[in-house]
Amino acid sequence: MITGTNHITFSVADLNASIAFYRDLLGMKLHVFWDAGAYLTAGDTWICLSLGQPEPAKDYTHVAFSVSEEALAELRLKLQQSGAEEWKPNTSEGSSLYLLDPNGHRLELHCGTRATRLAELKTSPYSGLVWC
């Protein structure tokens, strides 16, 4: 049985640029790096950057990271100043910023939680929503 997420790996074309993005812009903690990769953490989430030829999804597939409202406001300004590209406006519960990393991977910085999303669904259910 799956007990949780172990780690998330992103294929990256330029390791140094990706480390700078995830560490310096998003504030993740860099633990170690080597010629072809790096390990960082975002809270308790382990992130691996692996040198390769990225082919990011072009659909709604993305990774969402939790942030506070205050942190999101600071990150939004910092990311705009860096030239980071937004790929989608936020239309769901909770404040979010949808952005692309330097390799085109789709990320979301989100202030809500599963509990706040489920509470929102009680007042604004999705079409065909079934509670289990």
Rank of each mutant, 00 (worst) to 15 (best):
1 M>Q: 08
3 T>M: 15
5 T>D: 05
7 H>A: 09
7 H>R: 05
8 I>D: 00
10 F>P: 05
11 S>D: 13
12 V>W: 06
14 D>F: 09
15 L>V: 06
16 N>Q: 15
17 A>F: 10
17 A>L: 12
18 S>W: 01
18 S>D: 03
19 I>Y: 09
20 A>Y: 03
20 A>H: 12
21 F>G: 04
21 F>E: 05
23 R>C: 04
24 D>E: 14
24 D>L: 06
25 L>W: 07
26 L>T: 04
30 L>E: 00
31 H>N: 04
31 H>I: 02
32 V>Y: 10
33 F>D: 13
34 W>A: 00
38 A>I: 01
39 Y>V: 09
40 L>E: 03
40 L>K: 02
42 A>M: 05
42 A>D: 00
43 G>I: 11
43 G>T: 05
43 G>F: 05
44 D>V: 10
45 T>R: 08
46 W>Q: 14
46 W>F: 12
47 I>V: 11
48 C>W: 02
50 S>T: 12
50 S>C: 15
50 S>D: 14
50 S>R: 14
51 L>A: 10
51 L>S: 04
52 G>Y: 11
53 Q>K: 15
53 Q>E: 12
53 Q>L: 15
54 P>H: 09
55 E>T: 15
56 P>Q: 08
56 P>L: 04
56 P>F: 06
58 K>P: 05
59 D>N: 10
60 Y>H: 14
60 Y>R: 02
60 Y>P: 08
60 Y>T: 06
62 H>S: 07
62 H>C: 03
62 H>A: 03
63 V>R: 06
63 V>N: 03
65 F>K: 01
66 S>D: 06
67 V>H: 01
67 V>Q: 04
67 V>M: 02
72 L>C: 11
73 A>I: 14
74 E>Q: 14
75 L>H: 02
75 L>I: 08
80 Q>H: 15
80 Q>M: 09
80 Q>S: 12
83 G>H: 09
83 G>A: 09
84 A>L: 09
87 W>Q: 02
88 K>M: 12
88 K>N: 10
88 K>C: 12
88 K>L: 13
88 K>S: 11
89 P>E: 10
90 N>E: 00
90 N>I: 01
92 S>P: 03
92 S>M: 13
93 E>D: 09
93 E>G: 06
94 G>H: 07
94 G>P: 07
96 S>N: 00
99 L>I: 15
100 L>W: 04
100 L>F: 09
102 P>R: 08
102 P>D: 03
103 N>A: 02
104 G>N: 01
104 G>L: 05
105 H>W: 00
105 H>S: 01
106 R>A: 07
107 L>Q: 02
107 L>D: 00
108 E>V: 06
111 C>Q: 01
111 C>R: 03
111 C>I: 03
112 G>Y: 04
112 G>H: 02
114 R>I: 03
114 R>F: 01
114 R>Q: 05
117 R>G: 01
118 L>F: 10
119 A>F: 07
120 E>A: 14
122 K>M: 11
122 K>R: 12
122 K>P: 04
123 T>H: 13
124 S>T: 14
124 S>I: 10
124 S>D: 14
125 P>C: 06
125 P>S: 07
125 P>I: 08
126 Y>H: 15
126 Y>W: 13
126 Y>S: 13
127 S>C: 08
127 S>K: 15
129 L>P: 06
130 V>T: 12
